[in-house]
Nucleic acid binder design. Structure first.
Lengths: 327, 327
DNA sequence: CTGTTAGCGCATTCAA
DNA sequence: TTGAATGCGCTAACAG
């Protein structure tokens, strides 16, 4: 591969001159520039991004770390990040945290390959995150709280969301409500559950632990949890699934057992994924402002990059989307 | 930020010794290594990835360029790439080509920031792609054909897919079949159409141009095209949508007009996106082996990186998925 | 086993 | 306007 050296040589100028010419500096005469540009084209010269980043110690790119690049859930979030990053002349790369400490994600996190990072990946440990946090390296974390002066949080108000969803069911007249939970170590899940129990309490209902099932945030998990509930032969009147995937799994379980939603039982989800609108019956759920989360996150990164002070916590609220799974 | 220099100084060793110790070379005594590691921890040292990549002139990462990171369509593909890359100890980053020549994608393509690239992004021009192709820089292109000795193609057999889909409709007894096409500049679309007309010809049917509508590969486009077809008051017996998104848009148009699928008209899509299974009626479609495309692509990149000769064209076949939208 | 040294490719002084 | 020289942070060859 041709380097700038070769270009300079071919053009018959010094390296620095070539560099100036290629970077559109005005310190170079038109004729010289033309010579250099032509030489570059002839050699099919491409600059080495690393070398230049190394020199300027800035990459102009930010990374978005997701636990699973292929999850459809992230679409909106990515779009939010993408839009704002592009608008500010920054590049965005997405990488997956699959592979744990050996993953691409960790490499980018620790090795200064980017100017800032947004993390939404439960399999990146708190420890690694904290180790990477440092002055001048903005870190936005979306799915947990970390105590560190260089870490900023953007989160959805899960407690309020859980509360609103539950209150909605209660207002519809339901008294016996089950909760299908996500992984027990999920921060999001805990907060949604907190909102759930708060709403029950506020309405003088008490929660029966037999109606808390574990579903792991997966469709399969929701399916299994629901099957168990059905097997118990003591169905609640309504179910709050801690996310839509599990609710969709539940829908399938009910269908297989000839139980009609929402005639026999009402269900509500959380997230408002794309599929929620298409399943039968369409799923009533709490919509997360995913695009906004993404956009705000990058925005904060830019502010920090500029050395501005920002708060450490941002909370966005959720919105009830009424569809057909609650009667 | 601490550099390896600082670490070496604190540990009281030479820079190279520190480097060896940190890179788990066995050229260093246990005690020295311990000293160095401790110094590194104390200074919160993180190596600068660029500098090391620059030195080794290898990045161990490959890039996947997509026109839209947020498209659910890509899930499977990404997973295929991810799995194989990880298994080979390589990192994967995904970047979007939104922004054209200024996009992140182009930067990665041209500036040697990665060891290899997979492109599935119609908005990256052929010109840019060709400019980037060079020896020792494997380039796999998924959505078009380019004449260049350093470019390898992996494609789905769209002609066969189009043929199979159409033949299926014909075998069901349909004679009047419309085609809702993707963008006219889409290579994929052209090939599917070719398969479509081939199948008609093989069955002595002739194609009427009034039954070729344009839908742009979007749901909205499929919806509009279908509305037009309905407005013509001369419906075909079946429709072949060049992708699932458009078919889903069509489904909606039919529903709004009280036309029942598949009772009044049969439709078939192409791609087998996740949603296809969930719409009502569920969509009969041609499944693309997306995971396999991804996996094969990276695999080829590794072979090229190792200097092995590989073919320039790979074609994977599609598979008919029978569901409920064809009677 | 450890230290010295020479670049990787580029941007950027500082003199000329 | 140009060119020679310097160093970003790191690795690896070599010498001790």
């Amino acid at each position: 591969m041709a380097t700038i050296k070769d270009v300079a040589k071919l053009a018959g100028v010094a390296i620095s001159t070539a560099s100036y010419a290629l970077n559109n500096s005005n310190k170079v005469s038109q004729s010289t520039r033309k010579k250099v540009v032509e030489a570059a084209k002839e050699l099919n010269y491409q600059k080495n991004g690393f070398a230049s980043d190394l020199k300027r110690s800035r990459t102009n790119t930010i990374a978005l770390i997701l636990s699973d690049l292929s999850g459809p859930y992230y679409s909106e979030l990515i779009k939010g990040v993408q839009d704002v990053a592009t608008a500010n002349g920054y590049d965005l790369i997405a990488c997956s945290s699959i592979g744990g400490p050996q993953s691409t994600a960790v490499k980018f996190l620790k090795e200064k390959r980017v100017d800032g990072v947004i993390i939404l990946a439960h399999n990146i440990s708190d420890e690694i995150t904290l180790e990477s946090a440092r002055e001048g390296f903005p870190l936005v974390v979306l799915d947990r709280k970390l105590k560190n002066e260089f870490v900023v949080h953007v989160e959805v108000d899960n407690v309020q969301g859980g509360y609103t969803a539950t209150e909605y069911l209660i207002n519809k007249g339901y008294r016996h409500i089950a909760y299908v939970s996500g992984p027990s170590n999920s921060h999001d899940n805990m907060l949604r559950f907190e909102g759930f129990t708060n709403a029950l309490k506020a309405n003088d209902l008490n929660f029966q632990s037999k109606w808390r099932l574990s579903g792991d945030f997966t469709r399969e998990g929701g399916y299994r949890a629901t099957k168990m509930l059905i097997a118990q032969r003591d169905l609640p009147e309504a179910i709050f699934y801690a996310n839509d995937e599990m609710a969709i799994g539940g829908l399938q379980a009910f269908k297989e057992n000839g139980i009609s939603v929402p005639k026999d039982i009402s269900i509500i989800g959380f997230d408002d994924i794309q599929l929620a609108e298409y399943v039968i019956p369409s799923l009533t759920t709490m919509k997360q402002p995913k695009y906004e989360v993404g956009a705000l996150s990058v925005h904060l990164i830019f502010q920090m990059l500029l050395g501005e002070k920002v708060n450490h916590n941002y909370k966005l609220s959720t919105e009830l989307i009424e569809r057909d799974s609650v009667r």
